[in-house]
Computed example of a mutant assay.
Amino acid sequence: MTSARHAAAARRSYSKVTDAAPTHEQLVDLVAAAGRVADHSSLRPWRLIELRGDARVRLGEAIAATESRGGEHRAPSTKPLRAPLLIAIVSSRRHSEKVPGWEQDAVASGVAHVLSLLLDEAGWGVIWRTGHYTRSKTVERMHGLGKKEGLLGWLYVGGKPEQRDGKGEGAPKLVDAERLITVL
């Protein structure tokens, strides 16, 4: 079993993945663990939407509609087809006197990040994609978002590609923590 430190230090984004993807059952198991992030008042202010097959095509159509200006028709975006599985990360804010909205968004982000680490550890390639589409009403409707929900992006998930040189990429460089820590 990999340590949490090793999983975090070895994490990298895979912009290109193969057509393999975890099953729904495998995803459920990983989400159950990812859902253990710190969550003030246990509000569970998040949900995930699994997009496979034609759901990715519908997302491409929603993105194209967002990019259309003046009624022009655009071909569906192929961006959602870059991975066989997209997992939409949704912040679902709950009414709370104790927990502000930003903290609830942070919980949803935490779930996404932990899930990306778990997917990586399980052998899947993952990249978290965001952008202005996440704030598009057309894209929000396509995902069926409610009034107090916001789309934080998508985890694009697929098989890790083999390295052409056979050497692999190695671990990414760690950040220079000394420059980022202030001691008072």
Rank of each mutant, 00 (worst) to 15 (best):
Met1Asn: 10
Ser3Asp: 04
Ala4Asn: 00
His6Thr: 02
His6Ser: 02
His6Gly: 00
Ala7Ser: 07
Ser13Glu: 08
Ser15Trp: 10
Ser15Pro: 01
Lys16Asn: 10
Lys16Thr: 13
Val17Arg: 05
Thr18His: 06
Ala20Asp: 15
Ala20Arg: 12
Ala21Gln: 10
Leu27Val: 08
Leu27Asn: 04
Val28Gln: 06
Asp29His: 10
Ala32Thr: 12
Val37Ile: 07
His40Ala: 03
Ser41Gln: 10
Leu43Trp: 07
Leu43Tyr: 07
Pro45Leu: 05
Trp46Ile: 04
Arg47Lys: 13
Leu48Ser: 08
Ile49Val: 15
Leu51Val: 12
Leu51Met: 14
Asp54Lys: 08
Arg56Gln: 13
Arg56Pro: 05
Gly60Glu: 05
Gly60Arg: 03
Ile63Gln: 00
Ala64Thr: 08
Thr66Phe: 11
Ser68Arg: 03
Ser68Asn: 05
Glu72His: 05
His73Trp: 02
Leu81Phe: 01
Arg82Thr: 10
Pro84Thr: 06
Ile87Phe: 07
Ile87Trp: 00
Val90Cys: 03
Arg94Leu: 13
Ser96Trp: 11
Val99Cys: 03
Gly101Lys: 08
Asp105Asn: 12
Val111Lys: 00
Val111Gly: 02
Ala112Asn: 00
His113Asn: 07
Val114Glu: 04
Ser116Glu: 14
Ser116Ile: 06
Ala122Asn: 00
Gly125Thr: 03
Thr130Pro: 13
Tyr133Asp: 07
Lys137His: 06
Met142Pro: 04
His143Glu: 03
Gly146Val: 02
Lys147Ala: 15
Lys147Pro: 15
Lys147Leu: 12
Glu149Ile: 06
Glu149Gly: 13
Glu149Gln: 13
Leu151Asn: 01
Leu151Gln: 03
Leu155Lys: 02
Tyr156His: 15
Tyr156Arg: 10
Tyr156Ala: 14
Val157Gly: 06
Gly159Pro: 01
Gly159Trp: 06
Lys160Phe: 01
Glu162Trp: 04
Gln163Glu: 12
Arg164Asn: 08
Asp165Arg: 09
Gly168Phe: 02
Glu169Lys: 14
Glu169Tyr: 11
Gly170Glu: 10
Gly170Met: 09
Ala171Tyr: 09
Ala171Asp: 14
Leu174Phe: 01
Val175Thr: 11
Glu178Ala: 15
Val183Tyr: 13
Leu184Phe: 13
